[in-house]
Design a protein around this nucleic acid. Sequence first.
DNA 1: GGCGACGAGTGAATTGTTTCAATGAAATTG
DNA 2: CAATTTCATTGAAACAATTCACTCGTCGCC
Lengths: 359, 359
Amino acid sequence: MIVIKDVARRAGVSVGTVSNVINSPERVGEDTRRRVEAAIAELGYVRNVHARQLRVGHSRILGLLVLDMGNPFFVDVARAAERTAHRAGLGVMVCTSNQSASEEEEYLALFAEQRVRGVLLTPADGSGRTVEAFRRHGIPFVLVDRVGAGGAGCSVSVDDVAGGTLAVRHLTAAGHRRIAYVSGPPHLQQIRDRRAGALAALAEAGIGDEALIELPTETLDVAAGRDAASRLLGLPQRPTAVFCANDLIALGVLQTLFAAGVGVPRDMAIVGYDDIEFAAAAAVPLTSVRQPAAAMGRLAAELLLAELEMEELELEELELESAGEGGGGAHEHRQVVLQPELVVRRSSLVRRGVSGGLL
Amino acid sequence: MIVIKDVARRAGVSVGTVSNVINSPERVGEDTRRRVEAAIAELGYVRNVHARQLRVGHSRILGLLVLDMGNPFFVDVARAAERTAHRAGLGVMVCTSNQSASEEEEYLALFAEQRVRGVLLTPADGSGRTVEAFRRHGIPFVLVDRVGAGGAGCSVSVDDVAGGTLAVRHLTAAGHRRIAYVSGPPHLQQIRDRRAGALAALAEAGIGDEALIELPTETLDVAAGRDAASRLLGLPQRPTAVFCANDLIALGVLQTLFAAGVGVPRDMAIVGYDDIEFAAAAAVPLTSVRQPAAAMGRLAAELLLAELEMEELELEELELESAGEGGGGAHEHRQVVLQPELVVRRSSLVRRGVSGGLL
DNA sequence: GGCGACGAGTGAATTGTTTCAATGAAATTG
DNA sequence: CAATTTCATTGAAACAATTCACTCGTCGCC
């Protein structure tokens, strides 16, 4: 393997000069620089980031840990975050926790070992224990799709209570009085918030909590939706509408209902969540609560970048030892909460007859 | 930041002993080991992989570069590869080239800098130039979804020619005589192979090449499909079937045809490629050429792991300097080619009337 | 009792880079 | 022309781990 010393020898300069050519070329004379650059090209030298990072103390990589890369919603979040980080010259290491607290812990440990510059995290662990444990490494992080507890870090999230309300208000307005909630794993905060919003919408319409029939699932994918739909069909008093915790589940529900000859929206209305691209292309186009995925990813990355910049400024101040200004530039953690939006499509359309009857 | 020296001081041992506790605990006495472990836990010590890797010379991370994480097909490949690598104790850094040769080059440079242990790569660059350039770093790599040129590396791919033939043979058998091919960016080998397969199927049916109307697109996503469908509708002699280079495009085509009131499969049959999960859940369930995504990811990772293992064995032999056996254990590159499979669904069903008429 | 073997632990060398004080040469100034 | 500044370059220290040749007891065996 070619190392910097080989390049230095070839170009007839010291290793320090080679390093300068790479990191601050303006300090190097033109002909020397060209000689060094030629040597680098000829030898195919690639610098070793491990040696570099050992010396400078921190890497140029962000960690991004999402719940499930199988969900296009998170893919969109990840892409936007990656693009933003990339523009700032930072690489991103994308990982999936699969909604498992233990995998989350494992990946966070990996990030800590790697001394990543910062972390963007969609927490899988409802208790916040792993996040708490991660905090002590002193690596800045931003929570995505979840409000930070105690304001001890930045976060970007979408108002899930509002989202649940939007979905269920839409259904009660159409006259539905028994609504199933296919909810996913109950340890996720999002799931609980959406239920709270759903119950609020029921209360608004003067309907009791018992009108919401909860069907929890282990996972948040299409298969879980298919499974939940089978259970739904077996219920004694069948609901007339289903609110699904995300679009993957909704697509699974739709498939199984179709196979069982249950018409959508004729016999059963469906509302999904996330508004992924495939929701509009589904067998029956899905009504869904849209979350601004790209905006979340971008904002989360921007908050993290801002925090990192602050950190560097503070470090410089420390070096100058100009205690004059004090903590004037200290980073303040921000909790950004975005609003969801209901996108109505055919899966929840009201039949004219019924609608008219209710009015 | 806590370093190994701090742990050593706390536990009252040397740094070498702490290192031994972490890397080969059996060499350390029981009480010492416990003392060190306690110190590690109390101080929250996390070892610095950069220092470690600088010393040992290689990392425990694989690089995985796919064409597009927005395509569920590649997500499936990535997940399977990641799971396999994880089982062998290796982390995976997943990146997306977005079908751009320049981004591919950038990420491969990043992998080289990181001294990743090996790389799994879905090449975006049709010329093979970036792959060729990467080869000289001496990092083992396996091509995914592409046969390696000249057998100079392992590869796992699916027979795209066969896939194209399956799709178009299915359409010609149903009586279609003018078929559009929405192809994506023509610099991708997959795209060219599928066309070749399509032409072969036409020849089989005694139809000339001009029966295949190619509609290239810049990207391979839903939006590209929508755009291509608009162009398709404007063609003078409208084809009666569309073969799409992947399912995302097919979904986009389907959406636009639906919006334009063109019935599928009544007025236009559609065949997609990949058989992603959403193909079955589409407005009209999509006929598609299934690729064994998970198997590809798993096999690719296994081939790479095998190559890495060989490398280690050779290194050991070198150390022993037992030149007796010679190159008996040298790694032999393998080209695994998997077969695609046609999954027929509603989007290409033959109307009874027409079918009868043709027979 | 002396010798070798063995187990446990030490401490210094090593890895590839960055950084910075020091050096020397050239350019500028009074 | 001496003094000072500027500029390009050098060489060695520092980063945090691993590794390995050694040391130091202790034990067993003849």
